[in-house]
């Protein structure tokens, strides 16, 4: 299986009046074609920043280091124009809140026509509309919705239309940033099922960014757990859930409340501030298994076990 996206030593640092905020630090990640990579973590861990960094959607005060290799090219070294060309064509992104992502003043068909013609000015509106109808059928939205405005549609339908807009150019990778957080559980399951069937048809890989461990367990092939801007653990889904190795992953899985929960557990303490430089493991203050070395030395990623799990922890 070949890799569709390779992140190497990716770091994102925001310059703020109080000092540098290390939103993402030294992340290595590889996504194989046709697979779903789940990127999980809680609020503030840097997962959304990572997703946007790939597409160069960060504000001007973000300083990115490292490399983002896609289709043989390093996205970080491309010009803004070249990135704009790739974005929405070969690499697409859907966001959390479908309510605010569509232009309330434009009909749905104009969204499609504008998107298509932004990449291919030569395409005629009629042909763009035909392509729009094709992708709408793929996401099971009746084509009469093309004449409507976003506020006339339900949340689930808007999210499907967002997905359809991404599929127009058959991207190799779709980044989904909390795509179902604002939706109800039945709708969430429907959208994920839809994504799965589309992936097969379009031979597309998905980076699923979410805080919902259940989603990741149901749909992802591989899981990367982020904490304080770094990858704490990464590996194939089944072994990772069966035997989590990083203490944070263990704590996170224990604190999930599902239908079988009989006892509540929460990880003590709060996530650290990302302001300024830090030493040692960021999880040190909250870790039940901490050792003296963890306070001063940052644990590099090691490969552990038969499934070659990546773990950033001194225990291994």
């Amino acid at each position: 299986m070949n890799a569709v996206l390779e992140l190497e030593h990716l770091s994102v640092k925001y310059g703020t009046p109080q000092g540098p905020v290390h939103a993402v630090q030294d992340v290595d990640l590889t996504i194989g074609s046709g697979s779903i990579m789940g990127l999980v973590g809680e609020s503030g861990c840097g997962k959304s920043t990572l997703g946007r960094a790939i597409l160069r959607l960060l504000p001007d005060n973000a300083d990115m280091q490292g490399s983002v290799r896609f289709d043989g090219r390093d996205l970080l070294s491309l010009s803004a124009k070249e990135v704009r060309d790739l974005r929405g064509r070969n690499l697409a992104m859907i966001f959390q809140d479908p309510m605010t992502r569509l232009n309330p003043l434009m009909r749905i068909r104009d969204h499609f026509i504008e998107t298509i013609r932004a990449h291919d000015p030569a395409v005629r509106p009629e042909d763009a509309l035909e392509r729009a109808k094709e992708v709408l059928a793929d996401v099971r939205v009746p084509s009469d919705r093309l004449g409507m405005y976003p506020h006339e549609l339900s949340g689930g339908m808007r999210q499907r239309i967002m997905i359809a807009l991404c599929l127009l150019f058959k991207p190799a990778l779709l980044i989904a940033d909390e795509p179902t957080t604002a939706l109800d559980v039945i709708l969430e399951a429907q959208i994920l099922q839809l994504l799965q069937s589309i992936m097969h048809e379009y031979d597309m890989a998905v980076l699923l960014i979410t805080h919902n461990l259940g989603l990741v367990a149901e749909f992802a092939d591989r899981v990367a757990v982020m904490y304080a801007g770094r990858i704490a653990e990464e590996g194939a889904t089944v072994p990772l859930f069966r035997e989590p190795r990083h203490p944070y992953t263990q704590g996170l899985l224990r604190s999930v409340i599902d239908l079988e929960t009989t006892k509540l557990y929460s990880v003590p303490g709060e996530p650290p501030s990302l302001l300024g430089d830090s030493v040692g493991c960021p999880f040190f203050p909250r870790c039940e298994k901490r050792m003296a070395v963890c306070e001063t030395v940052f644990p590099e990623i090691r490969l552990v076990g038969e499934d070659r799990r990546k773990v950033a922890c001194h225990l291994y």
């Binding site: 559980v185 039945i186 969430e188 399951a189 919902n212 461990l213 259940g214 989603l215 990741v216 367990a217 149901e218 749909f219 992802a220 889904t237 089944v238 859930f241 069966r242 899985l253 999930v256 599902d258 239908l259």
Partner: peptide
């Protein structure tokens, strides 16, 4: 519909 955090 609830996703179960157990891939198995």
């Amino acid at each position: 519909a609830i996703p179960i955090p157990d891939p198995e």
